[in-house]
């Protein structure tokens, strides 16, 4: 009896597996398009952004929930940085793990590899990018009340940092969700010394002290990836604090009910309910009178 149950279980298991296997075989995996990008701001640890897209129809669509393995220089256990899973916009990111910092510091050229392996829905995929280390020197100068932003793009060559000419660079003011062009132009091209500059004449609000963040960045450069340098400076208009939220208004929360709306209704409530309690007291007086009558 026991044996029968055992063997039937095995048969069931085999059946299940074959069904599953055949189902898996039938399913055709689609192809992913993976994008890998390198970002570094100032001297922070760089961040790797991956995005995954697929093309089921005519258009590319973002793919959510794809685990992308990221490697530093080599696709080995030593090079494994971690795994980034794409969000609903098909984007995932990973900052360079601290254990690679020394390695990264000592190198001038490096490679990043992104792979997708063993995914149920998609074919294996690999993308790599090579990055040349670069630097942006940012200087904010004020002479005779003329404010100038100077940025210099440098790369390490033959033992020293040298300017990189003919590079497109953006000069910007950082805002909450995006960067606003700080000069007249959207892009500036570096000169022979690797320098670009623009006058800064924006009258733009900063924080309460007038601080703003000004920066220079190169985006999606073939060699350098994306790099940005930023500095904080008091070139903004100080923001006047707005206390309208703390006012007692009709739309405020209950702890900020307008005073008149507290005084008058409560006066009325007190007056009316005071009388109601007096009426109840009158009922009690009638009861007491009645009880006294009874005892007489």
């Amino acid at each position: 009896m026991k044996r029968l149950a055992y063997s039937s279980m095995i048969i069931a298991l085999i059946l299940c597996t074959t069904v599953l296997l055949s189902a898996q075989e039938k399913k055709e995996k689609s192809t992913l398009r993976i994008n890998l990008a390198y970002h570094q701001q100032n001297e922070d640890l760089p961040i790797l952004r991956v995005s995954a897209q697929t093309k089921p129809g005519k258009k590319f669509e973002a793919v959510e929930g794809v685990a992308i393995n990221l490697f530093f220089n080599e696709e080995t256990a030593q090079g494994f940085m971690g795994r980034a899973t794409t969000n609903n916009a098909g984007v995932g990111s990973l900052s360079l793990p601290a254990k690679f910092k020394n390695n990264w510091d000592s190198l001038l050229n490096f490679k990043f590899i992104a792979t997708v392996t063993g995914n149920e829905d998609f074919n294996d995929e690999m993308v790599e990018i090579e990055i040349v280390k670069a630097r942006i020197d940012l200087a904010l100068e004020e002479e005779d009340s003329v404010r100038v932003i100077r940025a210099k793009v440098l790369s390490f060559e033959d033992g020293s940092w040298v300017g990189v000419p003919e590079t497109e660079i953006k000069l910007f003011v950082r805002r909450l969700l995006s960067d606003l062009s700080a000069g007249e132009e959207e892009f500036y091209t570096t000169d022979e010394a690797g320098e670009a500059s623009s006058e800064f004449s924006l009258a733009i609000p900063g924080d309460a002290y007038g601080n703003i963040i000004i920066g220079a960045k190169i985006e999606d450069h073939d060699l350098f990836g994306s790099k940005a340098a930023t500095k904080i400076i008091k070139w903004g208009i100080p923001l006047e604090p707005d206390n309208s939220f703390d006012r007692r208004t009709l739309w405020a929360t209950r702890d900020k009910t307008p005073i008149w709306l507290l005084i008058f209704p409560n006066l009325m409530i007190a007056g009316v309910w005071g009388t109601i309690f007096y009426l109840i007291y009158l009922v009690i007086r009638i009861i007491k009178l009645g009880k006294a009558e009874k005892s007489v």
Binding site: V272, L279, L282, R285, G290
Partner: peptide, 28 residues
Amino acid sequence: GSFWKGTAAQFHISEKATTIISVMIIPI
């Protein structure tokens, strides 16, 4: 209402209460 004996004092209170309510219930 077993306590209602219909005494003059009770009537007086009841009358007073009814007048108070009559006045107050109109604005309410």
